[in-house]
Design a binder for these strands. Structure first.
Lengths: 212, 212
DNA sequence: ATCCATAAGCTAACGCCCGTAAGTTAACGA
DNA sequence: TCGTTAACTTACGGGCGTTAGCTTATGGAT
């Protein structure tokens, strides 16, 4: 297995204006290493370079240092997550209850499909690079803000539709709901077998959304 | 703080039958390294040895390899957690509601007091050592089983007291409640500033315990 | 068609820390 | 005194992040 990307071909050099392409390839290589199932310690600057089929120092043309690569991966995956949630919401149609479950399950599904990615997104291992990469606290917070806003929006729709008990703080409720989802998603991403019944997700969502 | 274990004295050698003492000192050194705030990558076999004031190879008399140290730390902290929950439960007296909040807050408090420890306990970084340390899935599951049983017990008391809506699966409810607590505790252990209102914990507990 | 400036990427090397193996010394207790 | 325990010193090989300097393909200008 492992389906090494180690091209025996020395790798076709990018054309004149397209040096920036390598940046995306580097991120893709890092993600591929994560998906291969080892833990995040396997994603070193050198291993990423090997995976991408380039020499290690070539990375420095596109990233300041090793933690910056991880940060870029997290940013990309956060965007994908937000996009997936939005899409699930749109696909669900107008029914509030359907929207709620669609968004929540989209979140849980994405986490289950890519547990390693989920772990680095929310595992906090890349935060030590904060000083180097100059990521601010606001920056960090806004990463998940989009998802939370969507969640609050859907919760509001549920209240309006009369299928959920209202609250004076929808955003706070969204945070609570997200924390529950996160607890489940994270635990699934970490252990092989989850304790508890199969419908834990439904229970969590119903309870935290205050469904009647 | 931290009360460095770095003795300038070459460290008094243990007496004849007390070689096992060093084992505890090694674990303590690993925990101290964690508490110092860096991430878990700072806990290497050599750094632990330095912290304990011994030579690196001396560790091999007590632990098979580096991951085994982490496993021992996790085991110890899991036991402390379970003990803390039990104690909080006993201190709370007979009132079901008081017991519920006492246990839940004890969990959250412990996680907040030692975020790094919490992260290695539930962060899943030490699982790769599974093959080496021969930790079984049952073993892993039973680590948290004690806490979950206590939670189910308290939930049952709430139902009996009539302050919570009952369910046909108390253990499942306990798992859901724990997942919510874990989501909050983990997120707090990872980021510096949490989004959302200050009373998220109360909301989570009330919703997941189905308090009336 | 040729030239050559430059973008794109490479090779070599430095210093560091790691995990682990092998053999050695100091202290305790019989 | 002497064997055993407890811990030490030294050393090897390897991966890491990063720096410095070099090579080569590309594509527009000549």
């Amino acid at each position: 297995m492992v389906t090494a990307v180690t091209n025996t071909e020395p790798r076709r050099r990018n054309r004149r204006g397209e040096g920036g392409k390598l940046r995306d390839e580097i991120i893709a290589a890092a993600v591929a290493l994560l998906d291969e199932g080892g833990d995040e310690r396997a994603v070193t600057l050198r291993s990423v370079a090997r995976k991408a089929g380039i020499a290690a120092p070539s990375i420095y043309a596109h990233f300041a240092d090793q933690p910056s690569i991880m940060l870029a991966v997290v940013r990309q995956e956060m965007d994908r997550l937000a996009a997936a949630l939005r899409e699930a919401d749109e696909r669900a149609g107008p029914d509030a209850r359907a929207r709620l479950f669609a968004v929540c399950h989209a979140y849980l599904d994405l986490a289950r499909e890519h547990p390693q990615r989920y772990r680095i997104m929310f595992g906090g291992l890349w935060t030590p690079s904060a000083e180097v990469t100059s990521i601010t606290d606001d920056d960090l917070e806004s990463l998940g803000l989009e998802a939370l806003t969507l969640l609050a929006d859907v919760l509001g729709a549920c209240v309006e539709a009369g299928i959920a008990h209202g609250s004076d703080d929808l955003y706070g409720d969204a945070v609570a709901l997200w924390l529950g989802l996160h607890g489940l998603a994270h635990q699934r991403a970490v252990v092989r077998t989850m304790p508890g019944p199969a419908d834990v997700a439904e229970r969590l969502i119903k309870a935290l959304a205050h469904l009647r």
